[in-house]
């Protein structure tokens, strides 16, 4: 197996994740897309770990899984807060940053 096939798969998933983050209006869907990005990174880590024949890559993939769990927890809490305050989780409706 070529290393590059995994890395390119990861790149594709990463880019799709980026698209999702940028294009979706629903807050929950944006979070899902972030999960996609994190998973793409995980594939990278494990592939490089296998390539270099160390377990370091796997260990960091595990850490990222833990970090992702934390991220989803906080992210969904924020989405819920937003829903409670504005009855909507439409990200396009949030434009208080307008200059």
């Amino acid at each position: 197996m070529l290393l590059n096939q995994f890395l390119l798969l990861s790149a594709v998933l990463f880019s799709i994740g980026v698209y999702g983050v940028l294009a979706r209006r629903n807050g929950v869907l944006v979070l899902m897309s972030i999960e996609l990005i994190l998973n793409a990174v995980n594939i990278n880590l494990v592939a490089f770990g296998a390539f270099r024949a160390t377990v370091g890559g796997e260990v960091f993939a595990l850490f990222i899984i833990a970090v992702a769990a934390a991220e989803v927890g906080v992210g969904l809490a924020m989405v819920l807060l937003m829903y409670r305050n504005r009855r909507s989780i439409d990200l396009t409706a949030i434009d208080q940053l307008r200059g």
């Binding site: 999960e35 998973n39 899984i65 969904l76 989405v79 819920l80 829903y83 009855r87 909507s88 989780i89």
Partner: peptide, 20 residues
């Protein structure tokens, strides 16, 4: 992921139902 995080997402979707 499949056991916990996706379930969390489904809860999130359920709790914010009605907006989308």
């Amino acid at each position: 992921y499949i056991g916990a995080i996706v379930v969390l997402f489904l809860f999130g979707i359920m709790l914010t139902k009605g907006s989308f």
